[in-house]
């Protein structure tokens, strides 16, 4: 991952003075600023959701059989979710430093509640008669969990991923107030300089990214839960 170093909008390059939206600026800064920021934004969001997913699924698999763990993890995830984003990133800096890792950890924290709750709900949603049949057929407890409950939780997990992806893409722009990373950086700089072209361009890029990511997750959802589609 590379960091965009040129963060201040270039007023002196193309003449954008007084214009509400200046295509020349977008063209001049696409490869140097916007594209790297977009790519970094994608990476950070994807990794945050991926880490969140791995942690949440592991925790949920343990939680379905240990109610004390479910309560504890749920409380932690809820706490992380309720801390205001900006405060959270600021509080993280002394611990993890001024780097992308801080953003990643923070965003991962935000996904946990959504992903954990949805996974637990999904694991519990397996029809009781399906589990009774599985027991009777000689599946072990772990086989019931991994071969029956986990796949049956996929629709619920995918619904969680959808919300988490959009949330993370949008929250990541807030993180730039603390650590320079992703689309939040040009957005933050444009905001400081009241540079409408920069604001609009980065804002639209973030929205477009969220929409595309959401559409991709929906497609992925259809791909991994063919039995849900079959019902229609």
């Amino acid at each position: 991952m590379s960091f965009p170093t040129q963060v201040i909008p270039n007023f002196s390059g193309p003449n954008c003075a007084g214009q509400f939206f200046c295509w020349d600026w977008v063209g001049a800064n696409w490869f140097s600023v916007l594209q790297p920021a977009l790519i970094q934004h994608i990476w950070i969001s994807a990794l945050a959701v991926l880490f969140g997913l791995v942690i949440s699924i592991a925790a949920a698999l343990y939680a379905v059989r240990n109610s004390w763990f479910e309560k504890g993890f749920s409380a932690l995830a809820t706490f992380l979710y309720t801390v205001p984003a900006l405060a959270f990133f600021l509080l993280m800096v002394p611990i993890t430093g001024l780097n992308v890792g801080t953003v990643l950890i923070g965003l991962t924290g935000y996904t946990l509640l959504l992903l954990f709750a949805n996974t637990v709900t999904g694991l519990r949603a397996a029809p009781p008669e399906t589990i009774a049949a599985a027991d009777g057929m000689g599946l072990t407890r772990n086989q019931v969990l991994f071969k029956v409950q986990l796949p049956l939780a996929l629709p619920s997990i995918m619904a969680g991923i959808r919300i988490a992806v959009v949330t993370v893409i949008s929250l990541e722009t807030v993180a730039a107030q603390v650590v320079q990373a992703g689309l939040g950086t040009p957005l933050f700089n444009a905001q400081r300089n009241v540079f409408t072209t920069g604001l609009i361009t980065t804002g639209l890029l973030a929205i477009a990214l969220a929409l595309v990511a959401d559409a991709l997750v929906v497609q992925l959802q259809k791909l991994v839960t063919p039995w849900v589609q079959a019902r229609r």
Partner: peptide, 19 residues
Amino acid sequence: TALRRDIGYVIQQVGLFPH
């Protein structure tokens, strides 16, 4: 588990694996 796998088991609610 070996015992159960070697006994056919059918219940009223069927309990097929939906996925």
